[in-house]
Design a protein around this nucleic acid. Structure first.
Lengths: 172, 172
DNA sequence: GAATCCTATGTGATCTTATAACATTTCCAG
DNA sequence: CTGGAAATGTTATAAGATCACATAGGATTC
């Protein structure tokens, strides 16, 4: 199990309570590795799509479609909802981003390239979203599905709570 | 682990692929047991709230807030969104119903009275929603949370796929 | 290199889901 | 029976998502 965390502040080095990283490099690397992966798979990472991914990577927390739309407008792209939704659809379909159902918002994938059923931890204080990676979504669902004959095609696993950095605030 | 299933048809005895039950009795029992529980806990199961719960129990699958609103209007209650949303808020807060984040819709709880972190299986063919009951939401999240110090307050666990009754249709 | 087709983008309109704000009523405690 | 809290009703609007159709870009075929 690995864990990747994103937070609100825009610093290069982010205090995440449990993980720090050079964010500028993280964005750059993610973008170029996505370029490479798309080239291999014959996917078209067009300017809008790449820009949306860049927004998600930069913010590094869940962004609503309309927040993305505002950013797109500022960047000179079309500003009607379908522009954002279509780019997001491409990113989600191809595993470069995920939708957080609980928030009706989107995050960049923390483990692109690997097929996975992600699980998310959402801090209700700072809006940080951490993606937990694991082989299978697992447990309850798997055993329930096996018991009943239900065929799982995709899973939503999200936890809302307080991240380590915010525990103090929460108890104050 | 127990499993409770709901389906689209309105028959008394429902073919659920894995479980049949007398639905009329199921609704009546659930309502009166909710009455009792509210009396004990000092909760006010007002007419609107009780009616919304009845709708959810009768339909026995996920209903959108505006579908509920239509039913409320037909039943002579207020027909503005907050009427439905407030009733749903009460039911969800007190564990008599759950929101299915994936569908932006609501279902009656299949295990009322027990504190639980439910998991749902949603059939994309027939819209059936089954609630799997288990002690804890489980491992990925738990282990990720433990590893990072994240404090889970509530969980969303939903699987979308094909229920046993629809497998044939799905493969056709 | 032009014609064609498929994919992607732009745009306007519309639909669904959800909440804010405030007035009115109901219920219960004192 | 009255004052305050909780619940309901209603208007308006915010937020999220999709449909339908026009236009533009890229690749393939001739």
């Amino acid at each position: 199990m690995t864990t990747n965390v994103s937070s609100k502040d825009a610093n290069n080095t982010r205090a995440l309570g449990f993980q720090r990283h050079d964010h500028a490099a993280c964005v750059t690397e993610a973008l170029s590795s996505t370029d490479a992966q798309c080239a291999v798979q014959g996917l078209r990472l067009t300017p809008v799509r790449r820009k949306v991914l860049e927004f998600l990577l930069k913010e590094h927390r869940a962004l609503g479609a309309y927040a993305i739309l505002d950013l797109l407008r500022d960047a000179g792209f079309g500003s009607q909802p379908p522009v954002a939704y279509r780019a997001l659809e491409f990113l989600v379909e191809n595993g470069f981003a995920h939708k957080i159902e609980r928030l009706n918002a989107f995050v960049a994938c923390a483990h692109p390239g690997q097929t996975h059923s992600p699980a998310f931890m959402i801090c209700r204080i700072c809006d940080t979203v951490a993606e937990a990676q694991s082989g299978l979504a697992g447990n309850i669902l798997d055993s329930a599905a096996q018991a009943t004959g239900f065929q799982i095609e995709c899973t939503v696993v999200e936890a809302e709570g307080v991240c380590p950095s915010c525990v103090d605030k929460a108890n104050a």
